[in-house]
């Protein structure tokens, strides 16, 4: 920790960090509290979209002001996490649909009639 900070900076960074952590925590609790897998899949996207975005933005602002030069490499993490999480979630969801259909579970949409091999797009 450095000795002195402008007040606006500390309030801005604090607000962003706390709100981001709150959103991420809400997503993780959703993972525990929701009933089915297809509902739970919506939980982690909160941490990766806005929750993570706010925390990374706070870090970028903080280091830009304290180091007195432009620090934006947090943006790389944000881009990477935001763009890759949908990919993993889609893969997981497709695997789950596949397994649910094989096991014949209820509450899962049927496979379309003209079946094709699950080719990646």
């Amino acid at each position: 920790m450095i000795a002195d900070l402008p007040l606006w900076l500390s309030i801005l960074v604090s607000a962003f960090v706390v709100l981001g952590a709150l959103l991420t925590m809400a997503g993780c609790f959703g993972l525990v509290r929701l009933k089915s897998f297809y509902l739970r899949i919506h939980g982690p996207t909160m941490g990766t979209s806005m929750g993570g975005g706010l925390i990374l933005l706070a870090s970028a602002i903080y280091f830009t002001v304290t180091r007195e030069r432009l620090v934006v490499h947090e943006l790389v993490i944000f881009l990477f996490v935001t763009l890759t999480t949908p990919v993993t979630l889609m893969l997981l969801a497709r695997a789950t649909l596949f397994r649910d259909r094989v096991e014949g579970n209820e509450g899962v949409p049927k496979r379309p009639e003209k079946a094709e091999t699950p080719a990646s797009p």
Partner: peptide
């Protein structure tokens, strides 16, 4: 999918439909 309220599950190329789960 990045929107927390919706998730893209499966795209069917033959019929060009997509299966989406909405929260």
């Amino acid at each position: 999918t990045a929107t927390p309220g919706s998730a893209w599950l499966e795209y069917d190329r033959a019929r060009s439909t997509v299966l989406i789960h909405v929260f």
